[in-house]
């Protein structure tokens, strides 16, 4: 036993050293959380590193998926007739098209909605080029051929779960704000609440692009969904149901008998010019109109009509 004060302090020093190391280690472990792994955009203002635009001289067209099939068809046609080779990109939505246009990433936006005031104020110019029906699409295996507004609501809010032959109904939704849904909501006001609530519940599958919707409708037994991109359903592998007894034909769209109609248009910054103007002029030319009609779309009435 040695009881000099010095000896008494040694265990204390050792103990406190170990204590401090332990606590420091714990604190470091805890404090280190996330600091180094935080994304850069939280701490620094980042600038784009280069131009957004594809580095070629072609006319780039992008926007609503509803417009893409018709625009591609028209672009293919114009390439044969004029010295133009427009590239129509996969769907990025009407809003995405307008933003890409304003960002200078593309020269021509294709939209399936009207311009907003703010967009008009910013000098954007809207040129409609077609009206297409928004069809209530069902799989080829579905026995039913027509729906009423009530039946449509019953299908989409999950009340009706079986087709007339007893097979199961599979509802396919588009994301909120989709142009086809908006068209139906305008005609059937309760439809907005119904789809909002089933989307929130996650009751049905949601598809984010026209292409994906098209594939899902063709491949899902008992499927039903809204679709409107001017593509002939029979070619795509599904069927359009009559709504309130009216078939979604071009004639019924033009006459106004078919209730769900979507207008497609081009958007340019300022009045169309250059290649964009050339392409629009072609679309609205008699050849273009004829092509649209062939695809079941209704071109705008010619000027002066």
């Amino acid at each position: 036993m040695d009881d000099t004060p010095q000896r008494h302090w040694k265990p204390w020093i050792a103990g406190i050293a170990v204590f401090v190391v332990v606590v420091a280690w714990a604190v470091l472990e805890v404090r280190g959380v996330g600091e180094d792994s935080r994304p850069a955009f939280l701490t620094t203002a980042l600038e784009p590193s280069g131009p957004n635009r594809p580095d070629d001289a072609r006319l780039h067209i992008a926007g609503s998926g509803s417009c893409v099939p018709l625009t591609r068809m028209l672009a293919g046609s114009v390439m044969q007739r004029l010295d133009l080779s427009p590239e129509v990109h996969a769907s990025i939505g009407s809003g995405g098209g307008i933003r890409a246009l304003r960002d200078g990433a593309i020269e021509l936006a294709i939209v399936s909605r009207a311009l907003r005031d703010e967009e008009i104020d910013a000098g954007l110019v809207y040129t409609p080029f077609a009206r297409v029906p928004v069809i209530v699409a069902a799989g080829l295996d579905v026995p039913d051929r027509a729906v009423t507004y009530d039946e449509l609501s019953a299908l989409f809010d999950g009340r009706r779960t079986q087709w007339s032959d007893g097979t199961k109904v599979v509802v396919l939704l588009r994301e909120a704000g989709d142009s086809s849904h908006r068209v139906v909501e305008e005609v059937v006001p309760e439809f907005a609440d119904i789809t909002a609530s089933v989307r929130a519940q996650g009751a049905f599958r949601v598809l984010y692009h026209d292409g994906a919707m098209q594939v899902a409708l063709a491949n899902t037994p008992g499927a039903v969904g809204l679709h409107g991109n001017g593509v002939d359903p029979s070619l795509a592998g599904f069927r359009a149901l009559a709504v309130e007894g009216v078939e979604p034909t071009g004639g019924n769209v033009e006459s106004g008998a078919y209730p769900f109609v979507k207008e497609l248009g081009f958007v340019t910054i300022g009045p169309p010019q250059g290649e964009a103007k050339a392409f629009i002029d072609y679309v609205l030319s008699p050849q273009g109109r004829a092509l649209l009609r062939v695809r079941g779309a209704v071109p705008p009435a010619p000027e002066g009509d």
Partner: peptide, 18 residues
């Protein structure tokens, strides 16, 4: 989506975010 829309995918923001 990105593969199908090089460069432009980011303009499809609302859908991406959704």
């Amino acid at each position: 989506d990105v593969q199908e829309r090089p460069l432009l995918w980011k303009y499809d923001a609302s859908k991406v975010v959704a």
